[in-house]
Each structure stands twice: as structure tokens, then as C-alpha cells.
Design a protein around this nucleic acid. Structure first.
Ligand code: FES
Ligand code: FES
Lengths: 145, 145
DNA sequence: AAAATAAAAGAGTTTTTCGTCTTTTATTAA
DNA sequence: TTAATAAAAGACGAAAAACTCTTTTATTTT
């Protein structure tokens, strides 16, 4: 079990992929995305339909259609993708599964766990979907298994 | 979805509970543990059977039987419980689901993610099962939902 | 207008996780 | 030595997550 659900992993990898491939205004089809990030095509389609409905990615049907992102989308933090797919629990939930993570009624690991959880939150809030489009190390980053 | 599976959450809460309740040499029954940590009794039974087989907790059948821990057990790090239940992936796996987290072929979030993942690893390796038995704030920690 | 293209939508199946219930085995105490 | 106790084991069942396949709708190009 990872930190994110598989659905969420595919979602993150796909938004990075789409951002990269459509920075020049082009669109990219589902088959190409699925190959590019090593994910089951039809399963990814469902995920992108959802992200499209939520306005996180844009899509167009028909010839020359496909998925793409607008300027606003590129500036969105990754945390929005994660929250859209997996919900807020990763950001606010108790590590030991208590109903409410609480400062006044904490589980044994609360303080240490919260610090770590907040670092993940900060990372996802500070990293935008388009973040790696301009970064020099984009070439060495990997999205396929 | 949490960081740990539900099974693992129950496992962690139960070892803390058993450690606390049996520090004086007593044993504690499954019903009491299940109530004490708010978990489904028979499901927890399966989990504890497994932890017992692995030597993480001890158990005894019959009257005055129940679960308990020896001195060695109290000194075991929580990471052993987590690894026994959820495996190593939380400690070594890629955040974006790539087959192998790699320094030379990293995913976009690799460096930042690895740092966070290692902090969780350190926390779980440095916290022993018996850690909160002697701590003054044991009374204010919570294991029930 | 017709054909081609590509996403959207619908309707599944499979697998894994989570949870329940019943029976068996081991131990202790009367 | 029988009854009571409590974990171990076995066999299910429900729900969620992961994945597949088919049909429909929208768009473009010829
Ligand atoms: S109460 Fe458990 S992490 Fe806050
Ligand atoms: S490659 Fe993704 S976390 Fe290391």
C-alpha cells in the first residue's frame, strides 16, 4: 500500500505528462498518455473524465482532440489533484485511524505524525502541475514504471 | 485512504494497548483489546493471530489466558509491526507508484518524497512498542475512535 | 452529408480489503 | 475428569478498489 491510491498515482503521473506534452498548445490523446505513464488505458480514461469534470484538465473530442491544460491549470498545486481523487484524509487524518486527529485528544504518534503529514501537505501545495515544465531536470524525471 | 491499511492501524493500536495493559505481567483478552481500541473483535483476532505467529505478541489459551508481551517485545520498534502487516513499501516505495524508487531514474517528486518517507521510517524505527509505558503523557494518549 | 476521430458514458468483471460467524484446540480450575 | 475459558483456525460475506469492454456523443475533415 502506497501513500496514495493507485488511481491517485495515475492521476498525478498523467497531469505531469499532459502538462509537459501540451505546454506548446497541442493536445494529447488517451492512448499516448496511457503509454507514456504505463497505466491501463480505459481505467485512466475514467480518471481523466473525472479530472476533466472538475476542471483540472481540459479535453476536446474529435480529430485533433485530446487532453490539455490551460495556463490556470498549470499553476494549480498538486494537492488539488490529490484531494480530488483521494480526499482530504491524507492531509488531516490520524495516522492510527482515529475518527478525528485532535490536538487535545491525540493518539500516541500524533505530534510526530502531524509534522510529517504537514510536510507532505506543503510539498503538494508548493508543487504545481506545471512545475517541471520549466525545470532543467525535467529530462531525467520518469513517469513510466 | 490513510498512510497505513486499516489492518495495520488496528495492529499498531493493539500492540500499544497490550503493552500498556500487560506491563505488570498480566494478560489481556481479545474482547477487552477490541473494546479498548474500538476494533471489530474477530477481525482483530486474525491480526493478533498473525502477530503472535511472528512473535511480536505472545498469547496463552484457556482461563487466565490472553495476549501479552515479553521484555524483548516491548523494545521492538513499531516499524516491525508495520512491516509485518503492510510490508516494506511504505519505507522504500515510490510515491507515484513507479516499480522501483530510484536515485538515478527518479520520479518528479523523488527527492522531496524520499525525505518525508525517511522521516516516517525514522519515527517508526525510533518508537518502540513499549515506548509510551514509561512516558508521562501516556494518560492523555488515545487509542479509541 | 458522410466518414473518421476521440472523448464521454454505461455496464460490467476481478481482485483486494475489511469484516463476520462457527468450529476446533489448548489450558486451567473445580 | 468434566466443565469452563480463551485463543486458533476455517469458512464465509460485504464492500471498495482496480480494471475491462462496449456503446454513445461530439467534433472535424473530406
Ligand atoms: S490524533 Fe493521531 S495523528 Fe493526530
Ligand atoms: S522514484 Fe518516486 S519516490 Fe523515488
Amino acid at each position: 500500500m502506497g501513500v496514495f491510491s493507485k488511481t491517485c498515482e495515475y492521476a498525478i503521473r498523467s497531469v505531469f505528462f499532459i502538462a509537459h506534452r501540451t505546454a506548446d498548445g497541442n493536445r494529447v490523446g488517451i492512448k499516448e498518455i496511457a503509454k507514456g505513464i504505463d497505466s491501463p488505458e480505459h481505467f485512466l480514461a475514467k480518471i481523466l473524465q473525472d479530472l476533466s469534470r472538475r476542471g483540472i484538465v481540459q479535453s476536446a473530442k474529435g480529430p485533433n482532440g485530446g487532453f490539455y491544460m490551460d495556463e490556470v491549470g498549470l499553476k494549480r498545486p498538486l494537492s488539488e489533484v490529490v484531494e480530488a481523487v483521494d480526499g482530504k484524509s491524507i492531509f488531516i487524518g490520524c495516522g492510527l485511524g482515529l475518527a478525528h486527529c485532535s490536538e487535545t485528544n491525540p493518539c500516541p504518534l500524533h505530534h510526530e505524525f502531524k509534522a510529517i503529514r504537514n510536510q507532505l501537505k506543503d510539498l503538494l501545495e508548493q508543487t504545481t502541475i506545471g512545475h517541471f515544465n520549466e525545470s532543467p531536470n525535467l529530462g531525467i524525471t520518469k513517469l513510466r514504471k
